[in-house]
Design a protein around this nucleic acid. Structure first.
Ligand SMILES: [Mn+2]
Ligand SMILES: [Mn+2]
Ligand SMILES: [Mn+2]
Ligand SMILES: [Mn+2]
Lengths: 221, 221
DNA sequence: TTTATTTTTTAGGTTAATCTAAAAAATATT
DNA sequence: AATATTTTTTAGATTAACCTAAAAAATAAA
């Protein structure tokens, strides 16, 4: 069955929202991420349900069907592989690739995806630390923690970010925070839950709680 | 001004037809290449004229404006750069890349095109011997000849093909004909204008006039 | 130079994806 | 339990890109 870019984007958005909760996804939540109106979403959900890609009953919210999940994962796979390509091969910075990948993720060619994957050395994660689903659509569950949830005194490694926005990523770059950085939490300020963190054993720097919330880490043993 | 994939494809098709002639391009010619109906073309030509990308007066045919020419050339540039990428980096054969490049040519990012160009080593031609327009949209005029127009006894080098179709390219591959091959024209058969040609000094093989017409060569001094 | 044929345009519709405004259903608050 | 608020859906339009059928213009043939 033919699928449009728009339909692919809806499935991707529903998938993204589903990762955060086991509840059904609301029309309004989809509308916000799709940057469209709720009325348009209602139309599209009906169409996606007709095509068998979501389970939807009006006023009840929506969930991906197995078929829809498969499509969504294949788009996420392409998005993240292309992001790796853009950073590793084309020399883009991690804050520059998301918009381009939003376009490239819709290119349709299984052979291309396979060859790209091999060319990149079968990467497991994208430039933001997000896991890349394999060909079968299996997404390794990476159990990372938000820096904001870690206690003072702990050491950890920066494994990913919870947000792709250019402004956020550029801020991290300015702070010398990149994937793989070693973070030592020196102190958490009670006043605003901001952090003093030493990055790769350098002089501690100040990090807002808002930033810490969007940094994903793994605690060192 | 925003441009759609469809509009880009129309401009590309008008550009292609304009290369073959200095006459105005007919509605029907565009319709055939776009695989659509003449009535749809008329609608679109009016729209493209409104946007300033073509000069069009009804019943008079159409020509690209300078602005339209620039857009068309940038799409051709992207198409051919991506074809080089697919063959040189991803390991596709020359008969497998056209359809994928038809999709990739619409990806919008000047930085990406620039980096891709550099990554590929600033190629001058694509895998089919077609010249790649530079950033300024200047297309080196490659004065190749059709093999079918060459006299018996001549030696030449295969520089390109006049057709991208997979069946044609696969046939060439079967015949051991690829870019750069040295062709010695042994004999041209009067009956059907077919050729006996020696490829890279091997035993002469038989080539139909139809094939010869679609092979572009440069004569050796 | 009429008449016939071909090409192109117009007229009127369809489909996908969107919108605004109004109605209906679900949820929250008194 | 009744009322108010929020969420979602329906109704009715719009735009881009396409279609078929009919009309108009251009070109070719008689
Ligand atoms: Mn991204
Ligand atoms: Mn990413
Ligand atoms: Mn091509
Ligand atoms: Mn080509």
């Amino acid at each position: 069955m033919a699928i449009s870019f728009t339909e692919e984007n809806y499935l991707k958005v529903i998938h993204r929202l589903s990762e955060a909760t086991s509840e059904d996804i609301s029309t309004n939540a989809v509308a916000e991420l799709m940057q469209t109106k709720a009325a348009s979403v209602t139309d599209m959900l009906r169409k996606l349900a007709d095509k068998g890609w979501v389970n939807y009953q009006k006023y009840q919210g929506v969930r991906l069907s197995p078929a829809g999940e498969k499509i969504a994962l294949s788009i996420v796979r392409k998005h993240r592989l292309w992001e790796v390509f853009l950073v590793d091969k084309m020399g883009f910075n991690w804050d520059e690739v998301h918009e381009i990948a939003e376009q490239l993720e819709h290119i349709e060619s299984d052979e291309l995806v396979q060859k790209l994957d091999a060319y990149l050395g079968f990467p497991k994660t994208d430039p933001h630390g997000d896991p890349i689903p394999n060909k079968e659509g299996i997404l390794p569950e990476l159990a990372y923690l938000h820096l904001s949830d870690i206690k003072a005194g702990k050491n950890c490694i920066l494994m990913g970010v919870a947000q792709d926005s250019a402004v956020f990523l550029q801020l991290l770059t300015k702070l010398n925070l990149s994937l793989g950085a070693k973070l030592a939490i020196m102190e958490i300020n009670e006043f605003d839950r901001s952090f003093f963190v030493s990055i790769n054993d350098a002089e501690p720097i100040f990090i807002s709680h808002e930033v810490a919330k969007n940094i994903l880490v793994k605690i060192l043993a």
